[in-house]
Design a protein around this nucleic acid. Structure first.
Lengths: 247, 247
DNA sequence: CGCCTTCTTGAATATTATCAAAGAACGTGG
DNA sequence: CCACGTTCTTTGATAATATTCAAGAAGGCG
């Protein structure tokens, strides 16, 4: 089983050197592959969720609808992410997941994690730490949505996405592909698509960013970081409390 | 060591019957006690956080400031909660914590968790599950803050607090003590203190709630739940994947 | 009783949403 | 490779929601 090209493994390896057993356990999760079209709903909310998914290609997002049609996007999933991990403490899914573009997923049963937890304490600790990291990221998002202006919210979102992509792609430039339309951006930061458009225009006029089709360039990262009071939560984790890994 | 009166143990026992070893491990975390005054800052953000705290009495909250003084309250802590748990994956604290009223805390060093993780797999799994539960609660909060009107946000907050208090206090009435001023409520749901006041008045006129000093009565819970599309995330967790606990 | 904090209320303002329509981009099939 | 339909983005005008500033009322505490 070759696991050299697994984004999941390379993403997790950013934090600790995984032992062979851990790498094998992870590779097993990526045994199956499935293709999904853009805008396809992978699963809905409040479903019996027996499956998790490793993202192989493409972006997706988790969201929750309100009864009247309003929608909140909660997390954007990139290659190497595990979708559904947050829901393992519940019998049913708490969010729905949709493909932001055509993508490839590796589904695996919820039970597949049991062996990880029992056989690979180091990996279990890492997955735990990543879950806590995602919690902190969510806290930063709450702060942005609850207390920031439209432009600050969008600045925060762009910097957050960039920081995440930098984990696996260390040679990243200041330009990234952003396969989300403005309604989706709005649903993520709590604005309407119209106001997202106006705000992006304004940011472009101010020279903070530039856009070219699906690509966004962050031109004045420091200024954006200052206005969003941004902290990179992805780069480093405290792994000192992990079991038996001195690496 | 008697652990009959520990709110931490009774709160966690709501989900699984803890074995003796787990109960002892938890009791050890509550060995020390410290008193704090109202409005006292327990710790700040970005501090070296070697200590966690079990709440023994009183309410507190975690928050983050923005550089210009705006503030977002992220979580309200009740007796039986563990403060600082979310930060163990980082070297520094990611939020600050303040006492909403006079309170009693049991501080213990971050390392105190290591023995829990290594000696009590069942308890480790439960703490993990509770962390995931809190993640889901945060997702619901994001949805409320990002996509709901002022009244819906406040409805959501009240129902969330009530659901949490019901875990330990099963005989709870529809009235609860709410030791938060309107600025704090506003900082929690993303509104100004002024608009919180207006909205609470309106909710009272509509007969949704009533207030008497520090106490709030939820008079039309079903209507509030419908407007906030509320789901109780506290009552039940999926514990089937826990190690060796058939209880 | 008096001080301090919190809550309420009013008026003016700012920000964002809504509605509507036109323009741009994009993919598909001929 | 072009025409067409569709989706996405931009722009304008108007409306709703929440904020800000300010001042007075209520309540708790020494």
């Amino acid at each position: 089983m070759s696991n050299d090209n697994s984004c999941l493994i390379s993403k997790l390896s950013h934090y600790v050197d995984l032992d062979v057993q851990s790498r094998d356990s992870l590779a097993r999760l990526e045994a199956e592959e499935e293709d999904y079209d853009r805008a396809c709903e992978i699963y809905g909310a409040d479903m019996e969720g027996q499956f998790l998914y490793v993202v192989k290609h493409g972006w997706l997002y988790s969201y929750i609808d309100l009864p009247d049609g309003r929608r909140q996007i909660v997390k954007i999933h990139h290659p190497g992410d595990i979708i559904g991990f947050q829901d393992i403490a519940y019998h049913q899914t708490t969010t729905a997941v949709r493909a932001a573009e055509a993508c490839v997923l590796c589904p695996f049963p919820k039970k597949g994690l049991t062996t990880v937890f029992s056989d690979c304490p180091q990996l279990a600790a890492l997955l735990f730490a990543v879950a806590l990291r995602d919690h902190t990221v969510l806290v930063d998002t709450i702060r942005a949505i609850g207390r920031m202006s439209a432009m600050e919210k969008i600045a925060h979102m762009l910097l957050d996405l960039q920081a995440r992509l930098r984990i696996t792609n260390t040679s990243m430039t200041d330009t990234m592909r952003l396969p989300l339309n403005q309604s989706e951006i709005g649903d993520f930061v709590g604005l309407t698509n119209v106001y997202v458009s106006r705000t992006l225009m304004r940011m472009e006029e101010m020279g903070l960013i530039s856009r070219d089709g699906i690509n966004v360039t962050i031109k004045r990262e420091n200024d954006l970081a200052r206005m969003a009071d941004f902290t990179d939560r992805y780069r480093k984790l405290d792994t000192s409390w992990f079991p038996d890994s001195e690496s």
